[in-house]
Nucleic acid binder design. Structure first.
Lengths: 340, 340
DNA sequence: CTGAAAGCGCTAACAC
DNA sequence: GTGTTAGCGCTTTCAG
């Protein structure tokens, strides 16, 4: 009657014990490969056979209960929609959690306060090991009080003036890399189309832009720094000004802005990179990899943010209370900066 | 000493009972708002006060154990990366699960068999109520054996020749809608840039294209049906052929193809929609909403797929064994089909 | 080497 | 109205 059981009625350890003719203790020992447990080869084999025959699956919930620890890590995200970004954070967190034998409980709040309260309550009731509180876009945030009831770390956001640990992208270094890409090609008049909305990305990338110039010994003409809405429309609309400034290269606040800029340039019969070198930010796959020519950009490390968040939470990676771990933004060079 | 407790050491029901001077049963009754339980107003108040004072959070794991039911629903996804699509399925499933008092356990397998086995094992050990098995792109799939150990439904995929229930997008109706959009504007020579990869999307949308023509009493010139790789590059490359065919409107297999086509048209000095009306598919926000002009398209109902999957799993929505629930693909009209 | 027994935090009869 | 009691499936001393 050896068949991989379909657990209509869930098989318990006691049943395995009975079938193997041993006690539950013995079953527990062999199932968990207990270190200091000396089980006879014969008994062990019988147990293993019974496990297979019955299609036994341990009940983690019961195990957690008796051990007083759960292997849950909660991830609350303010948005999962719109872009692949949140998905990457989830993926990074999930895979890293797994690697450490933990399981991710995901809750999406769409920035709704009630949903957030419910989500946290739920996680606390599941006795999570800790909570990752993440936002879709890098920003400062207020901490919901319930977070204090368990260990937590912020992902892609930070709480100024608190002792909370955070994991965020290194915007400054990213801005520096993006600008350096252009500088390295010999560009000296590099426009920067920054976003209009105040954010760490806005400040950080601008600072990076300045630092890169300083490192290269190039003076920044502040007139080259523009603001535009951080979408295709913004980039499209900025083209005129960029051209008027005599820039030969442009660092765009994000890939969508670059996409809009591409359109505007094309309409004027200008070619990238021959007439204008362009660098984006975000590495939004659907866009950056498929523009003509493919867009050089700097990637936002969402996967890494999620993964690092888990490591910090589990104490695998140390971050001082109140400090932020800055994760590097890798450069993705493509064809928009040098003719081939 | 009324303070919202920070649960360093987790507070149990027994402690609440002691503080309130009642038995655990009473606490259980008031905490769960038990229907047939007559608890004195006085005792109830004392319990509620104790709950607050101690910062008590029920332990769902223990509750699940005794009740023999868990509130977990597993969602295994083959990919969470690349696009926002998987994210939307997750979001739909998560929110619908919540609405029914359930919690989503997410596992990402990146199409890796071992990861998939582990994911299923994990979910089974957590005694999930059922599993949603989803793929990133609509397709036929093989069922991993472990799935048979619990209730399950397929999301965005299907298993031909099995009794498994599935929830998939209605590609045919979607293709029909997209084509009808063009037909309604008076277009009679409508090119269809289909994908080169065999898939339900390829067959379904083509059938929809034909059906729409039939309904409008327009003969289909088969020469108007082209194949191209389902990305920007494919659309860009198809422009020449489309123009040669004398089409006045194009239905693109997806938004990315449409984006590539836009580029090619612009390079030739042609305008959308004046010189060519364009309709996409997928409603990939980052693209469709921000092309110039914004692209009319048909949305893939990923959120709904996830939500419907949960409903089917929980028996809220009936689907015959072996059958597929087809979810409508809503039309998203924008400016790419008629001059304003 | 193996088993008996206690108990994790909670619910659900069933007494009182 | 409220308390007692017996488990849920499992781990873990502690005996044998």
């Amino acid at each position: 009657m050896t068949s991989t059981g379909r657990a209509d009625r869930t098989v318990t350890m006691r049943e395995v014990a009975e079938r193997a003719g041993v006690s539950v203790t013995t079953v527990s020992h062999v199932v968990n490969d207990k270190a200091g447990a000396r089980i006879g080869a014969e008994a062990r084999a019988r147990v293993q056979q019974a496990v297979v025959d019955l299609g036994y699956r341990p009940n983690v919930l019961a195990k957690n209960l008796v051990q007083g620890t759960s292997a849950f890590i909660g991830l609350v995200a303010d948005s999962i929609a719109t872009t692949p970004f949140a998905g990457q954070i989830i993926r990074g967190a999930q895979e890293e959690a797994w690697r450490h034998g933990h399981v991710l409980l995901v809750a999406n709040t769409e920035a709704d306060e009630a949903a957030e309260r419910d989500a946290l309550a739920m996680m606390l009731e599941y006795k999570v090991r800790g909570i990752l509180y993440s936002t879709w876009t890098h920003r400062a945030t207020q901490l919901p009080p319930a977070l204090a009831e368990t260990d937590h770390v912020l992902v892609n956001c930070y709480a100024p003036g608190t002792a909370t640990r955070a994991v965020v992208p290194d915007e400054v270094a990213g801005g520096r890399s993006a600008t350096a890409l252009l500088l390295a090609q010999g560009h000296r008049r590099i426009a920067f189309v920054n976003t209009t909305s105040p954010s760490p990305a806005r400040e950080g990338r601008l600072q990076g832009y300045r630092e890169a110039h300083a490192e290269a010994g190039v003076e920044v003409d502040e007139a080259l720094v523009l603001d535009a809405s951080p979408e295709q429309e913004g980039g499209y609309g900025a083209a005129e000004r960029i051209l008027a400034l005599g820039a030969t290269g442009v660092f765009c606040h994000n890939d969508r802005v670059a996409m809009g800029l591409y359109d505007a340039l094309r309409e004027r019969g200008l070619r990238v990179p021959r007439d204008m070198a362009v660098v984006g930010f975000d590495n939004q796959e659907v866009i950056a990899g498929h523009l003509r020519p493919p867009l050089s950009t700097v990637a936002l490390p969402h996967y890494e943010l999620g993964a690092a968040g888990v490591r910090v939470l589990l104490g695998e990676q140390r971050v001082e209370p109140g400090a932020s771990l800055r994760v590097a933004c890798p450069v993705i060079p493509r064809d928009s900066i040098s003719a081939r």
